[in-house]
Nucleic acid binder design. Structure first.
Lengths: 223, 223, 223, 223
DNA sequence: CATGAATGAGCGTTCATTCAT
DNA sequence: GATGAATGAACGCTCATTCAT
């Protein structure tokens, strides 16, 4: 065993460790950022607060993220990735497609309930002012994950068409519509949940169930 | 005829005129604000620019609006009121309810096409960061108009249920769902229209038509 | 006399007053800036300190000057303008040209003695890093005044050539050389006055006198 | 032969080698710094860039230099030493003193042409802001080299006085003046070379020649 | 009512320097 | 000796809002 071999080895170990620590640190920052952004909103949150919240100096934050916006979108990316993961579990289920679509709605709702913080972030991070200050890689990544989510929905619908459960609609269009309905419903609920519940007298879950039901029904062939 | 009578009279006239002028001025500011907000977005627009754009001093703006956010939400209110007006035209149409729902979708889409500026405003102004800095009256007013729009949809669906065209669903829930689908679709299109068109290969109008169709279909009784 | 006439009049008065106050305020800022810049140097001075030093808020400073650099160069411009003024007094003197050149040296030295603060500023403000952040107008103005100073020297030398006191040299080149000698001498003295006086055993005034004398002598025709 | 003897010996060898390596490393840093400082200027250059540019870690730089300013002044010292070396070649020339003075001007100009990078550094590093952050030893060293340069000029002039070519002036003062003229001319040319050439219509070399000529002429006895 | 100069807290960001490894 | 992650004070600058005129 030569010296250089030793050094390479130790270098690899070091590099590995460094990378691991870097990732851990990034995670820690994102965790703190999530808390701050949710408590204060994007506009009112400050990088100072995020730094304080994870016990780091402000300058350190900028070693890991280029800007406040980049933190925000990274957070969205993480949230969306989690959602994607949850959604992809659908592939392992053996059910008729109409049940699967309903299941997707349930997955989305459960995810929303457990990760409410992410939602406001997901909605605002598509704002041009935010996107303008984010690197292309990050932007592309976030678009990619968004597409992947829609793909899951689209696949389920496609399968439904193939098995004759659904009419011959464009699966992408139908997926977009279902996705839009769910997003729109949650968003409108986020805007004014008290008012919604008061006026409508229905909670979000029931409305989403109803909405999924209507769309599933609407996708079926009139007999 | 007493002096005070005269004064009262003149006071009334004056007060009326003052109110009228106040309203005109507010309109002028909103017109300028719309231009500036649309060109620059909410975050990058400055009150200075709005003031310049309508030939007033910055301080004067604050005589008519409490804050930048209040201007923004007022603008949304105006947009939403216009939409409400358009939607209420549905009442004068004599068609079966399923056609009416489709018509509502068309009205919405046409309004969107002619008033794209308002939409971005409508979407952002529902963000908590913005709403937090707006007076209750204005907030209530905007919620009121929102409700009125939804009411129109709800009425149409209700009538559809009564005439046996639609299943016995909760009309408010169904209205919310339709509304959410349309809003969500437009919003996702606004976020990344190029990507959407590329990936999905369908333009907004077709998707909205398809979406309305699916929901209308879904509202109907399985036979 | 019409109403509009009155308004025009009052507008003029207002505008005049505003302009006058604006100028006064600018002067006040420059006065404070001079003190701060001299005490701390350009690099270590902060706009905050300048603001404190003249009892204004930091933001106010930026209403009058675009940047720290612009303040600095404005200060230089003022200093150079004062010097120009002093130098132009030479025109009213009736003396032979060789005496006038010596007189110019004296004027420069006296100005330096009374306005030492300006000199460091004049020297550093020609640094590219500083100039890069200054508006073209200001830069042009400062170049213009610099040229005007040199013009005075050049005129005196030209006259000396015409009256046969000096050889037929290029007056601009000679002026540049005289100017460079004086500037270079003062600058080297500024760098390390103690060392200079110790090592050389001569004070600045004597050296400048000697320098002017040598150059005047050198401009004369060998006989 | 004792063990301690061995150790001393090896210690000496080690120490020598260490010193040699230390010097080499310092040189490498200065080489990289020169490139960075010239490309970006003192203010905009960062220690990070210097470190990257010579393949060292930022912290390592601080093992060799106390501060960014110390690097800068070390660089100036190196430049000035080169100039000194060039100037001292004058001693081996057999020419009348007036020719020698002209020769010194030529040497200076040629050095400037080949080492423009150093000049900006030399000029800025004489600024109090920079000098304030530099150790006494380094400052003294730089003053020493500066003095040595001036000594060469002074010697030449002294010899000219002794041989009757020049008048009985103070040789140090005359040297300072010549030096100042050359420095001042180059500096003013560096500041705004385009403007200079346009306005004056003469290039630097001609002006420097003329300047040296005037001063040489001025040092001579009127006959 | 209208003005616009002044405010000043707060912003995102930088980078020379330190220090644990 | 070498590293480079972490620091954190300080930076220049912005702009919604106020208030004396």
């Amino acid at each position: 065993m030569t010296n250089s071999h030793n050094m390479n080895k130790s270098h690899n170990i070091k590099a590995e460790r460094r990378d691991r620590e870097r990732l851990t640190r990034k995670e820690a920052i994102l965790k703190a950022a999530r808390k701050v952004f949710f408590a204060k909103g994007f506009m009112n949150a400050t990088v100072d607060e995020i730094a304080d919240s994870c016990g780091l100096a402000k300058g350190t934050i900028y070693l890991y993220f280029k800007s406040k916006e980049e933190i925000y979108v990274s957070l969205m990316l993480k949230g969306l990735s989690l959602l994607k993961q949850e959604m992809e579990k659908i592939h392992s289920l053996r059910m008729p497609s109409d049940r699967l679509v309903e299941k997707l709605g349930e997955i989305y709702f459960n995810f929303y309930r457990k990760n409410k913080e992410y939602f406001r972030i997901i909605f605002l991070s598509s704002h041009p002012d935010v996107r303008a200050r984010v690197s292309h890689e990050l932007l592309d990544a976030s678009i990619g994950v968004g597409k992947a989510c829609l793909q899951v929905v689209s696949d389920v619908i496609k399968r439904g068409i193939e098995t004759g459960i659904f009419r011959k609609v464009d699966p992408w269009a139908a997926a977009t519509i279902l996705w839009a309905m769910i997003n729109g419903t949650i968003m409108s609920h986020e805007q004014d949940p008290i008012c919604r519940d008061e006026v409508i007298g229905l909670e979000l879950e029931k409305i989403l169930k109803e909405g999924t039901d209507i769309i599933v029904n609407g996708l079926k062939e009139r007999s």
